[in-house]
Every structure is written in structure tokens, then in C-alpha cells.
């Protein structure tokens, strides 16, 4: 079976139910795992990216497609040998201490997940200690922090210091973002990267881990 038209269409539409059913059908028919991934799911996401860049699709639709792909991946992933399918990288993400704003952070998390990163979302009001512990626990490649308030921005610096004290600062890359955050602030607190929006966050994360 080499035709994944039904699957790609369902992923583009963000129709989770149909896409999962199509994936199962392909698996039952004995289709090649790598083909389902490459010719079905990734091919669909390529079209989604294309439609998004020409304005035919909006962010919610792109996120839905990404989520649809993730749901299909849940069926495929266990069938791969452990070293056959690597995630792009492990990301621990959250809104910093005393800040409860999470829409921007959620968008970044969803976009990164759609792009193939393994996301651990710690939610809002995340203390430096919690960021550090979780990063150690999962062996994070990236710690991503968000702040909407200028008053909570200092917590980003404290989190970086906590990573240092725990001795893992050289093992993780730190990304920051949020309305008041700037490139300058990022270099001032010695974060590794700053992204102004969710789309750029994905690009920045890939760059940090040197993946295309």
C-alpha cells in the first residue's frame, strides 16, 4: 500500500478520528512504518506548512493538524525499535514563577510538538526549582520559559542560576519568550535563545540543537 491520500487529507483537515483510523488501517494492511510516517504524516505536514505560509490556513488549523499527527504517532511510535525513531529533542516548558499567563507558552508548546519535539509542559507559575528538577528527570535538551509581565521576568534569570547550581546548565539550552522579553534581555541573562513568536520558537529550537 503506497497511497496515503486519506491519511494526508485527514491530517490536513485536523480530523483526528479519521486520521487515527486511517493509520490503523495502514498498519493492519502491513504498510511500511517509515512510509506511513514519510509519505503520510510528514507529507501532510509539509502541505500544512505550505498552506500556512500562503495564508490559506490559520494557526488554529495548523495546530490541529499537528495534534492530529501526534495522535497518529502514538500508534506508530511503539512499533519502531527504540533507536529507529528519535524525537527531535526533549523540551521542558513553562510560564515562570508568579506568572499565570499561558496562551503564548501553550502555542509554543503545541508548535514544537507538531514539529517533532517531545514536550514536558509544567504549566504556569513554575519555580526555578521545578524547572531544574524536571529538566534533570527527563534529560531535557531545552528549557523554555515564558513571561508576560515585566515583573516576572527576573524569575527567568533565577531559573538559569538554578540550572547552573544544579550543574546542568551546560547540558541544556535555554530559550525564553513573552511580550516584554527582548533579544537584549536574553543575552543579558545569558539565555541561549530568544524567539518573538511560536513559529520562530520552532526554528530557534532546531537551530539550538543543530537540526534541520
Amino acid at each position: 500500500m503506497s497511497d496515503f491520500k486519506g491519511l494526508t487529507e485527514a491530517v490536513i483537515k485536523g480530523d483526528i478520528q479519521t486520521a487515527v483510523a486511517e493509520t490503523q488501517t495502514a498498519l493492519d494492511a502491513g504498510a511500511n512504518l517509515q512510509d506511513i510516517l514519510d509519505k503520510g504524516l510528514i507529507a501532510a505536514m509539509d502541505q500544512v506548512g505550505e498552506k500556512f505560509s500562503t495564508g490559506q490556513m490559520f494557526v488554529p488549523q495548523m495546530l490541529r493538524s499537528a495534534k492530529t499527527m501526534q495522535e497518529c504517532m502514538k500508534l506508530i511510535k511503539p512499533l519502531f525499535q527504540e533507536d529507529e525513531l528519535a524525537t527531535k529533542g526533549k523540551v521542558v516548558i513553562g510560564t515562570v514563577r508568579q506568572d499565570l499567563h499561558d496562551i503564548g507558552k501553550n502555542l509554543v508548546a503545541m508548535m514544537m510538538e507538531g514539529a517533532g519535539f517531545a514536550i514536558t509542559d509544567l504549566g504556569v507559575d513554575v519555580s526555578p526549582k521545578d524547572f531544574t528538577q524536571k529538566a534533570q528527570e527527563v534529560g531535557a535538551d531545552i528549557v523554555a520559559m515564558s513571561a508576560l509581565l515585566s515583573t516576572t521576568m527576573p524569575a527567568m534569570r533565577e531559573t538559569i542560576e538554578a540550572l547552573q547550581e544544579a550543574g546542568i546548565r551546560d547540558k541544556v539550552k535555554v530559550m525564553i519568550g513573552g511580550a516584554p522579553v527582548t533579544e537584549n534581555f536574553a543575552s543579558e541573562i545569558k539565555a541561549d535563545s530568544y524567539a518573538p513568536d511560536a513559529g520562530s520558537a520552532v526554528i530557534a529550537a532546531k537551530k539550538l540543537l543543530s537540526i534541520s
Binding site: G14, F58, P60, Q61, L63, R64, D102, N106, L107, M110
Partner: peptide, 14 residues
């Protein structure tokens, strides 16, 4: 929560 990925959003946003 948020409304970004809800069907309702996608139905009405345009």
C-alpha cells in the same frame, strides 16, 4: 483553558 484549537474557533474564525 484556551480556545485556540477548538472546532468552534475553526468554524467561526474566518
Amino acid at each position: 483553558g484556551n480556545y485556540v484549537m477548538e472546532d468552534h474557533t475553526i468554524e467561526y474564525m474566518k
